[in-house]
Amino acid sequence: MKFKAFLTDNGVNLLEKRFLPALDKMGRICHLYLTRDHAIFLHNLLNGDGIQSIAQFRKEALFDDYRISSQNDDRIAFSIDLSLLHRALRSIINIYTEFSGSHTGGGAGPTSSRLQIKLVKKLPPHSQQPMPFLTFETKGYRSAVIQDVPISKPLSRSDVLELQAALDMAQDLPRTLVQVPDMNQLQNFVDRMKHVGDLINVSISKYGDLHLQISTTLITLGAEFRKLLVIGEQAEVPVGDRDLSAQSRTQRAIQRGDAITVQVSVKHFAKSLQCHLAKPDCAFYGIAPEGACLTVIFQFFIPGLASMQTIVVLEVHFEFLICTF
């Protein structure tokens, strides 16, 4: 079982500034799953408790000279503490930038010192048992730094299979996805909504409506965002429905089979919005087929490319409580 790669400048930037802070908010411990083509951060995929989040990076998004081998079809997975990973990366970046700063104009060509990341087994101090680590190594101008981030034992073959199966299942995209244009506004709203109730109904229609509602015995509070961009199955709003209240429009859309409603915890919903920290290029909400879960998909494009090629997909799934078709 071997893994060795060099983190690109862009990869360092993506992880340090955008993804690790956002993923850390989802939960401190996650699985890091490495395959021949992808590096994937996964939250709660095996125990299925709480929010599931999947951040899938194409290897080119983070690494160059990426080498992986294992007897399990070149797949390696382990769990890792994101805050430790973040700390290690931050500290090593100082040395790294010191070096690259003195070689400006050197271009992107391979230099003698780059930020290497690899899996190692080491004997930690005061221990007889070698332990697995994810190691960062860079040589600065005057110094070399090695950071060892402790990780779990690699997952067994059956656990990796299970992880892959859960991942495959999560790849089933909802039939209708709506794009939320202003995540700030949504986050602001949900943060304030938290005070009013614990459960939130989320409805998504083929007309491009996203309807959020909290309802308790004392109060109903909702927000409806209309005319959002729809990906997948879409439909025209029936003429008679245009001037109805948000609630009746959603109700009729559900009856017609044009919308699905799920109920999730407000806390989870607010947490998912933290992914916004990773500054995605766009965000989509959808409800998985059969109402299996509410899915949020954040897309990130390669910067500077005219054709918008996705480099990272971050998916968040919620377990739902009640689902209405």
Partner: peptide, 11 residues
């Protein structure tokens, strides 16, 4: 706003 609406009913 026509395309985003917040509403509430308080008992």
């Amino acid at each position: 706003s026509l395309d985003a609406c917040i509403y509430s009913e308080i008992r």
